[in-house]
Simulated assay, not measured.
Amino acid sequence: MSSEGMTHEELMALPVTMTLEQANRALALGRTTGYTLARRGEYPVHLLPRRRGYAVSRYHLYDYLGVAVQPSEQAASVAE
Rank of each mutant, 00 (worst) to 15 (best):
S77M: 11
V56F: 09
L27G: 06
P49L: 08
G5D: 10
R52G: 05
A13M: 12
Y54A: 04
G53N: 13
Y64A: 05
M18A: 06
E4C: 09
Y43P: 00
L27F: 05
G34V: 04
N24H: 12
E80L: 12
Q22S: 10
A26C: 09
L65R: 06
A76C: 03
P15T: 08
V45F: 11
T7R: 00
H46K: 14
A76P: 01
P44D: 00
T36M: 04
H60C: 12
V67D: 01
P44M: 04
Y64L: 14
A38G: 04
M1G: 05
Q74H: 11
Y64D: 02
A28W: 06
L14I: 11
L20T: 01
T36I: 04
P71E: 00
Q22M: 15
T19N: 10
A28R: 05
G53W: 04
V78K: 13
P49A: 14
M1H: 06
E9T: 12
L48E: 09
R25S: 05
H60D: 15
A38W: 00
P44G: 03
G34I: 01
N24E: 04
E80I: 14
P71M: 04
S57A: 11
L11S: 01
T36K: 15
E21Q: 15
D63K: 14
R39V: 03
Y62W: 12
T19W: 02
S72K: 13
T32V: 15
T7Y: 08
S57I: 07
L47Y: 01
E80G: 10
P15C: 13
G30W: 07
A68T: 07
D63V: 09
Y43E: 04
T32D: 09
L47V: 02
E9R: 11
G5N: 10
P15K: 13
A26M: 07
S2I: 06
A76V: 13
G66C: 05
L48S: 06
G53Y: 06
N24V: 00
T17L: 15
R40Q: 11
R52E: 10
S3E: 15
L65E: 00
V45T: 03
Q74C: 12
V69E: 15
G53M: 08
A38N: 04
A76T: 05
R51M: 07
G5Q: 09
L27C: 02
S72Q: 13
L65T: 03
A38H: 03
A68E: 15
L37S: 02
V67G: 01
P49V: 10
D63P: 00
M1L: 13
T32H: 06
G34F: 05
Y64P: 00
E10T: 07
A23D: 01
G30C: 06
R50N: 05
M1R: 12
L27H: 07
G30E: 01
T33E: 00
A26Y: 02
A76Q: 14
V56K: 05
V67W: 03
M6G: 01
Y62G: 08
A55N: 09
Y59H: 12
H46A: 13
Q22N: 15
L27V: 03
E10Q: 13
S2K: 08
T33Y: 02
V45Q: 05
P71F: 06
S57K: 02
